[in-house]
Write a protein that binds this DNA or RNA. Sequence first.
DNA 1: TTGACTATCTATAAAAT
DNA 2: TATTTTATAGATAGTCA
Lengths: 222, 222
Amino acid sequence: MGKKSLGRQKVEMVKMKNNSNLQVTFSKRRPGLFKKASELCTLCGAEIGIVVFSPGNKVFSFGHPEIGNIIHRSAPALHIVESHRNAHVRNLNMQLTELVSQLEVEKRRGEELNHMRRASQGQHWWEVPIHELSLPQLRQLKSVLEELKRNVEKLLIQTTNSHQFFMRSSNAIGVFPNNIEFDANMMSQGYNAPPSNMMPPGFSLNPEVYNPCPPEFGHAFF
Amino acid sequence: MGKKSLGRQKVEMVKMKNNSNLQVTFSKRRPGLFKKASELCTLCGAEIGIVVFSPGNKVFSFGHPEIGNIIHRSAPALHIVESHRNAHVRNLNMQLTELVSQLEVEKRRGEELNHMRRASQGQHWWEVPIHELSLPQLRQLKSVLEELKRNVEKLLIQTTNSHQFFMRSSNAIGVFPNNIEFDANMMSQGYNAPPSNMMPPGFSLNPEVYNPCPPEFGHAFF
DNA sequence: TTGACTATCTATAAAAT
DNA sequence: TATTTTATAGATAGTCA
């Protein structure tokens, strides 16, 4: 009897022409990618976040570890400054997540707009909801930002206070290397910053979330 | 003659005990992961962003496509509202990247603090630079947020104007489904949002950036 | 879609260099 | 410690159910 199949064939590394093959390949390779990531997390203790926009514009995400694990893994008897820092990070994370979701919505809406334009060539291009949606979204964003700003100002004050406290209680300050530093210039030139993400359980804006079998990783990272 | 090597052996899917093996495995598998991602991008036209924190706390990132490509790939003769949206997204992205980098620095500092605490048990736990660094960082963040808020306000005004323009030029508004909607409640309950990121060329906060051979992808995504 | 199945390609653990 | 080699483990293209 002859061979049942030719088996796997080599595939040229260019965008696939056949669109249905492309879909199948994506559906097979995307979980492969997430599996590789999960293995890297498990074997090496790495922390990984991945976002994938599929050719059909669906969103898939992978993250390890879950945000909750990170927040709670700090030991109970921590130093006051560290808890301030944790609060700060937690706060930023929450606010950031909100910003990110705004962005995501904007992006998806843009894609929708593209689709509608392509789908209705010759028809009325203005028949899109974008100008309707922009106002409430921008207003929402504005209020989120205002709250974020207030929070940061509060933290600034708190940290100032604890800083002064340390100035009084220890003279060790200043002898350690300042190995993390900012300046305003840096910010305006652009840089390479990794994304952060947070996905509380029980709610999904839309995307499929990879929730693998091993307990080691969840669907949020930061 | 006997075999020169046993070849690849199966490895159990748990965190590796031997720390130097772990390092080696990470160094081998991380580029493998990025390669898989790049293949998925190339073959299927997917858009992917990855961030990896190594066991040694280095940061690696992968992104496709480059932010610039996304911004410029919109057709030249686009409708005014869409260009507003693009400006909006671009703006949010830039600001978000700044927030994310702040978060990243906070996170790394937290880990450092943990390391130092573990490393110097019984020594002076207050000998950490955290209370030194917090002030400039918080101040920096505050100014970034203020700028972000100003930008959003500006966009809010611009969008309001274009909205009014459309109100005058078309009566099609309102007949289309409002398929993306926010409300403040949603924001406070948490949701699943994929991260966004932006990494302009020529600058790196710290992390290694994957800059693969094929021209198809760069080191930024969004 | 959503998986099996097979044959083959690719990634990589260990050893050698 | 980094690179190359060896040989197996794992991923997946093509196919069909």
